[in-house]
């Protein structure tokens, strides 16, 4: 079964930038949350985005996906300027995000949470629900099948009919990932998918992301504090500090970089030990 999504199939070739972040600035009052940040995410990559708390990673995701507008700078998607477009417009262009703190539809079941996502649902048009029940039921069956596939992919079948508000923190994280899968997006920005997830589940989560990348060609950009996970999945890794990019490259080089050790990894290892 194939489910058409609205994502514009990109002409961007493998290895070329699908997402260019160019000189983004954003301050809240006196806080320069994002301070001249520029980097690119290449098609087919799993790009890591690391840096200390408060570096501006979440704010950057929030800007890139259209939830807030930058003070200046631009975001290019497949080379086209999409700065200031609404999240739903970017969704239809194949760019989605997940939230660091899970946002679920708490009064909907896990299955319904996923079914709510896909675009082009006839049943979301009130007049079609009244006058074209056949078309609505047909599409609804497709969406349900896709949601059930996604639930078993994520190992959430057991809580299929549980209200999402009752799920554990880890399950909600998986649901966040599930939502991005249901969107049919080509580019997914994951904000700390591993936070609050137990180590076994975290390993599985990493494998799932890798499978989505390999099998479905989804490009990822992942914010994560778990350096093992980043090292396993991501190449390249972008390091952000104080709102801008400190350095980028592969994880082995990053680990040796004195500035990164001072700004971030030093404190990480200190915490861990």
């Amino acid at each position: 079964m194939s489910l058409d999504t609205n994502a514009e199939t990109s002409a961007t070739p493998e290895g070329q930038p699908v997402l260019s972040i160019q000189g983004i600035y954003k301050s809240f009052g006196g806080v320069h949350a994002v301070d001249g940040c520029s980097f690119e995410v290449n098609k087919g990559s799993i790009t890591g985005l690391i840096g200390p708390n408060g570096a501006g990673k979440t704010t950057l995701f929030t800007i890139v996906t259209g939830f807030i507008k930058p003070d200046s700078g631009s975001v290019l998607l497949h080379g086209k300027d999409v700065t200031g477009e609404e999240p739903h417009e970017l969704f239809h262009k194949g760019l989605v995000r997940t939230f660091q703190i899970p946002h679920e539809f708490h009064g909907l079941t896990t299955l319904e949470n996923l079914m709510a996502v896909p675009a082009e649902q006839d049943g979301e048009n009130l007049f079609k629900t009244w006058f074209m029940p056949g078309a609505v039921a047909k599409r609804e069956a497709e969406v349900r099948a896709l949601a059930e596939d996604t639930l078993s992919f994520l190992g959430l079948d057991r809580v299929r009919d549980e209200l999402a508000g009752n799920l554990s923190g880890g399950q909600k994280k998986l649901l966040e990932l599930g939502r991005s899968m249901m969107s049919g997006a080509e580019i997914v920005l994951l904000d700390e998918p591993g936070a609050g997830v137990n180590p076994t589940l975290l390993l599985q989560l990493g494998e799932k992301i890798q499978r989505l990348n390999e099998e479905r060609g989804i490009t990822f950009c992942i914010v994560e504090h778990n350096m093992d996970m980043i090292a396993r999945l991501c190449d390249p890794v972008v390091v952000m500090a104080a709102g801008s990019v400190l350095t980028q490259g592969n994880m082995d080089d990053i680990r040796k970089d004195q500035r990164v050790l001072e700004a971030y990894l030093g404190s990480q290892t200190a915490e861990a030990s």
Partner: peptide, 23 residues
């Protein structure tokens, strides 16, 4: 119907609804 589902979804969590591509 899916329409009602979306309305309930918006009521539950507006940010998640926007992240799910809903206007």
């Amino acid at each position: 119907s899916p329409w009602g589902r979306i309305m309930r979804a918006i009521r539950d969590n507006e940010l998640a609804a926007r992240a799910s591509g809903k206007n």
